[in-house]
Amino acid sequence: MTDEHRTPVSLSGLSSNDPRLQPAARHPELVERVISVCFIVGTLCLAGFGACYWIDAQPWKLGATLGAGLLFLGIGIVAWGKYLMPRGPFVEERHTLANSDADRQAFAAAIVERGGSVVQRRKLLGGLLGGGMGIFGVVVMFPLLRSLGPLPKRTLQHTDWRSGSYVVDQSGRRVEVGDLAVGSIETVFPEGTENSDRGQAVDQTVLIRVSNEAFTTMKGRETWAPHGYVAYSKVCTHLGCPVGLYEQELQLLVCPCHQSMFNVTNGAVPQFGPAPRPLPQLPLYVDSSGFLRSQSDYHQAVGPGFWERS
């Protein structure tokens, strides 16, 4: 094609023998043949999809036939448009969107002057209506927001561990002092919550047995870990994922979500990663029948930080 014919022209008023209305392909017949093959293969594939669906074939067969069918049809249609339709290029004028100054002024005048005269003369009405709508807006938010959920109150500060709660595993079996071998870890709950959502989410605790029978994590917690049983909240202080990953040689509890590492030996102080606070430790004791029980609730709120947390 000569250079002159590559200059874009407007589509309207083009004579029908203009080279720009000719197909873009150099060999349109060949392209047509290729496209018809695409259409035939595509149609066959789609028919195959129907057959696969009918006989309830595996998903990959359904997907393969559907995908191939659509793909072949698509390639054919695009090729049709790209190679067999008027090659152009065509041009279209771009009109400025902005109107004339007169039109703009008339529009602005309609709003400002007409509106102004109405509102400014009736300031009281405008004020009253505005106030009313404002109060309506605030009031309407109450049911929309307040009905959505209960108030937090102090539910985030406490768990269901009480003084004397039996330590049970997920099946509800009470843990006895001889149960766990050294180096073992178990997820435990206060008795009665092991099947509840709140128990799973808030009360979950990891119970680890270490070799040191007189194990103390830090000063003031001398009685908290009887017979080497040490219990920490399983809710990560970073974002609340269950800290279920215990590496017994490193003596680290690791959060699987963001890899905060808590040192089991010194009160689960974070040693690495984004967690800002130690995992709260649960004070335990062994009762006269040999069952593990909690001395009290955790002394801090478990889980991630929030504004009301002290």
């Binding site: 595993d169 001889g178 149960d179 766990l180 071998a181 050294v182 180096g183 073992s184 870890i185 178990e186 680890i208 215990y246 590496e247 017994q248 040689e249 490193l250």
Partner: peptide, 8 residues
């Protein structure tokens, strides 16, 4: 480093 699962 794997914890032992004995007793649980």
């Amino acid at each position: 480093n794997m914890p032992r699962f004995t007793g649980n």
